[in-house]
Amino acid sequence: MSTENTTKNPTETPAIEHTRNGLCFRPNVDIRERDEELLVLADVPGAASDSIDVNFEDGMLTIHAKVAPRQEHDHRYLVREYGVGDFYRTFRVSEAVDAGKISAEYADGVLMLHLPKAEAVKPRKIEVSAK
């Protein structure tokens, strides 16, 4: 699995990538490997569960979480350390993942993707039979 996008995290450098709708950020992710699956956790704070698109096409997994502006465009901040906008990130998914069975959950601003491993690459314990 490799990361294709190189936009920046909103909490450090706001907005590198511009989309039609304005600002777009690269979510922070954790990718954990388990025996049965790859688990992807993506921080997309401010997104509502029905505004998150997860797409798989041509071996590419795309996360696009739309985040509605919380303030007016010309809002005056006393302190502004981060920008608010959509989250977008793309991953190349290896063939070792069973793409048909990818599933997603969302809670508290964190998107959780389960990428089950294809049967062929799951760890298998080989029984040794005694003669």
Partner: peptide
């Protein structure tokens, strides 16, 4: 007024309304 966040400190946005100060922070998870 506010020192910049240290590494791993969550960033904040602060703004003022007529009757209140608002502090917003992204804390996913």
């Amino acid at each position: 007024f506010l020192p910049p966040p240290l590494r791993n400190q969550p960033a904040v946005n602060i703004w003022e309304q007529h009757e209140a100060i608002l502090v917003e922070m992204e804390v996913p998870g």
